[in-house]
Design a protein around this nucleic acid. Structure first.
Length: 270
DNA sequence: AAAGACACCTGTCCGC
DNA sequence: TGCGGACAGGTGTCTT
C-alpha cells in the first residue's frame, strides 16, 4: 500500500488523535515483522506523545523515553479504532491511548517494522543515509542531474533509489516518468538536464496531487482516518499495461525492471 | 563501486 | 473446485 503519499495521508489521519495523548499500554501480538519488535518498545508505555513526524516512508512518534519508528512495508496500515473493537487477523500491534482509542497496526505480509530509538540517539541506521525529501527545496534539477552523471542504471531505478531521493515508489516512478515523457529504461547518466528539470517538477506534482487526494487506494488501503484515497482514478499508466495511452492512444507497454512492473507509452516516452 | 538478484511473507488472481 | 505459479505499494543484503 504505502508510498510517500499514503504514509503522509496516514500521518495526517492519526496525528490529531495521538498528539498529547499518553500511551497507556503496548500490545505486541506478533513481534516478527521485518525486524523483530524489541522489548525496549515498552519503554514508551506511560509516556506522552510529543510529536509525530515523517521522514521518507517512516513515521516517527516522539516521546521523552524514546522515539517509535514505524514503517508500513508493502501491506501495513495504521488506524484508530475504539477500544472495544476486537483484533482481526494480521492486527499485530495495538497502542492503548489515554483518550480511549487504540492505534492499531495491521500488516498481512509483515514487511513493515516498529523500531525503538533512544531519546539521546545521535544516529539512526535507517534514516541517516537517505536522500532528500522529494518535496523539499533540496531536491532540485541541479542535485538530481549531478547525481545522475555517469550512471548506467535505468532512470526509473535511479529515481526509486532512496539514497538518491526518498519516497518515489513504483506507482509514482511510473507516473512521473510518463508525465515527463521519459522512457524508464534510459540510462540515468544519458538523460539531459532539460529532461531532469521536467522530471523533478513531475515528481513533485504527482506526489503533491496524490497527497491532496488522500493517497492511492489499491487493495484495502485506508488512511488513518478510515477514508480511502482517491488518487487511483488519476493514475495514467500504473496498472494500465495493454490499455490505450491517454495522450496518443498507443498501446501502453508493460515490462519488468528490477522485478518491478514498468508501464510506459512507447510513443510519448521517446 | 555499481548493478542485479534475492530475501522476507501472505493474499489474490489466472490458467489448467 | 483445486493446485501451481506469478505477482503485489518496500528495502536490506548478498552475488556478480
Amino acid at each position: 500500500m504505502p508510498e510517500l503519499p499514503e504514509v503522509e495521508t496516514t500521518l495526517r489521519g492519526i496525528e490529531p488523535w495521538l498528539e498529547g495523548q499518553t500511551i497507556e499500554h503496548i500490545d505486541v501480538r506478533q513481534p516478527k515483522l521485518r525486524w523483530p519488535v524489541e522489548d525496549e518498545i515498552h519503554r514508551l508505555e506511560g509516556q506522552m506523545i510529543v510529536s509525530l513526524k515523517r521522514r521518507a516512508k517512516y513515521i516517527l512518534v516522539e516521546t521523552a523515553a524514546g522515539t517509535a519508528i514505524w514503517h508500513l512495508g508493502m501491506s501495513g496500515s495504521l488506524r484508530l479504532v475504539d477500544d472495544d473493537e476486537p483484533a482481526a487477523k494480521h492486527d499485530h500491534i495495538d497502542w492503548l491511548l489515554s483518550n480511549g482509542k487504540i492505534l492499531r497496526y495491521h500488516d498481512p505480509r509483515r514487511f513493515g517494522a516498529l523500531l525503538w530509538q533512544a531519546p539521546d540517539a545521535t544516529e539512526s541506521e535507517h534514516l541517516d543515509h537517505l536522500g532528500p525529501e522529494p518535496l523539499s527545496d533540496a531536491f532540485d534539477v541541479d542535485y538530481l542531474f549531478q547525481r545522475s552523471r555517469k550512471k548506467t542504471q535505468a532512470i526509473k531505478q535511479f529515481i526509486m533509489d532512496g539514497k538518491v531521493v526518498v519516497g518515489v515508489g513504483n506507482i509514482y516512478a511510473n507516473e512521473s516518468l510518463f508525465m515527463a515523457g521519459i522512457r524508464p529504461t534510459l540510462a540515468a547518466g544519458k538523460v539531459s538536464k532539460a529532461r531532469y528539470d521536467k522530471l523533478v517538477a513531475c515528481i513533485k506534482l504527482v506526489l503533491e496531487r496524490a497527497i491532496e487526494q488522500g493517497g492511492t487506494t489499491l487493495k484495502d488501503f485506508v488512511g488513518g482516518d478510515g477514508k480511502p484515497g482517491y488518487f487511483a482514478q488519476e493514475l495514467l499508466v500504473y496498472g494500465r499495461g495493454g490499455e490505450q495511452c491517454v495522450h496518443c492512444k498507443s498501446t501502453l507497454k508493460e515490462i519488468r525492471q528490477g522485478q518491478r512492473a514498468t508501464v510506459y507509452c512507447p510513443a510519448c516516452q521517446g
